[in-house]
């Protein structure tokens, strides 16, 4: 039938357009990979295609950066836990509990976004010294949680606003405390938003550089952003290795993103609670 073939044609057309868009938008990343796969070439004479791909750059990258990847993973996951532990109740409070001064709290949340990272990091340093949090995983986790907290509160609140109050009230009538109701009803319903907020927090923490740089004076805690920065600074001429490191550093986050992608699509904004 003509109608079917038009639709199929349009679908194929869309796929082609999508591919073109991908090529254009992702070209720089392709270039990164390209350079990484051409060990020994000077940057000004890189070929368009890695005709004889070499993996030595990646080997070197993993060798020197492997430990930092693990550190980043631990820090990012920790930051997600800390952040959500604070953001979820706060978002619920703002969304559902009709707190007076709720508006100024939102304003306060927005203010936090305005302060440049350097300003925060430098101020934190002196406090951290007194609290013995410098060069510690815990200290970095606490700091990185701040990267996702405002965003998570805004996101979760936007979702929780749409949860009907009756649902929670019903549980409380049955004898549960508000907190228990929150944990057993609100949280599961908000699963998608929680995952989305957690995902973004993970990504913010993963790519944090400012805190990693400022709050660590030794090599004890070295996330991937920091070790890459040092690597770039130390191997200025070795672009192949630098790019390989960059690719390697993006992979864990990319995997996480693809896996959690369907939750993200579903959980972004407040929708009706089915």
């Amino acid at each position: 039938m003509i109608a079917v073939s038009t639709r199929t044609l349009r679908r194929r057309g869309n796929t082609v357009i999508a591919l073109v868009i991908l090529v254009i938008l992702l070209f720089p990343l392709y270039w990164m990979l390209n350079i990484a796969l051409q060990p020994g070439e000077s940057l000004a004479s890189t070929h368009w295609l890695p005709t004889s791909p070499g993996w030595s750059n990646f080997e070197r990258a993993l060798e020197s950066q492997g430990g930092s990847l693990v550190t980043s993973l631990v820090v990012a996951l920790g930051a997600v836990v800390v952040c959500l532990a604070m953001a979820a109740p706060a978002a619920y409070g703002l969304a559902q509990l009709g707190l007076k001064g709720g508006r100024s709290l939102v304003f306060g949340t927005l203010i936090t976004q305005m302060v440049p990272g350097i300003v925060i990091a430098n101020a934190l340093y002196s406090a951290y010294v007194d609290l013995h949090l410098v060069n510690s995983l815990a200290g970095l986790i606490l700091a990185d949680a701040s990267l996702g907290l405002p965003f998570s509160i805004v996101l979760l609140r936007a979702f929780m606003v749409s949860i009907p109050k009756e649902v929670v009230e019903a549980a409380m009538v049955d004898g549960a405390s508000r907190f228990t109701a929150f944990v057993r009803i609100v949280l599961p319903i908000s699963r998608n938003s929680l995952i989305t907020a957690g995902l973004f927090t993970f990504l913010f923490a993963w790519s944090d550089f400012m805190f990693a740089l400022t709050l660590n004076t030794t090599d004890a805690v070295k996330p991937i952003t920091l070790s890459m920065y040092e690597y770039i600074g130390a191997h200025v001429s070795d672009w192949g290795a630098v790019m390989a490191t960059a690719v390697v550093s993006a992979v864990p986050a990319a995997i996480l993103l693809i896996v959690a992608q369907k939750y993200v699509a579903a959980g972004i904004t407040g929708g009706s609670v089915k």
Binding site: G78, V81, V82, L84, A85, M86, L131, H132, L133, V134, N135, S136, L137, A138, G139, I141, L142, T180, V183, R184, I185, L187, P188, R191, A220, V221
Partner: peptide, 24 residues
């Protein structure tokens, strides 16, 4: 009622803050 570990985040947070004094 999905199985959640409601106390876990709180617990973890407490642990982290406590261990902050020990590490680093």
């Amino acid at each position: 009622f999905l199985r959640r570990r409601p106390a876990a985040p709180v617990l973890l947070l407490t642990l982290l803050v406590a261990s902050a004094g020990l590490t680093g």
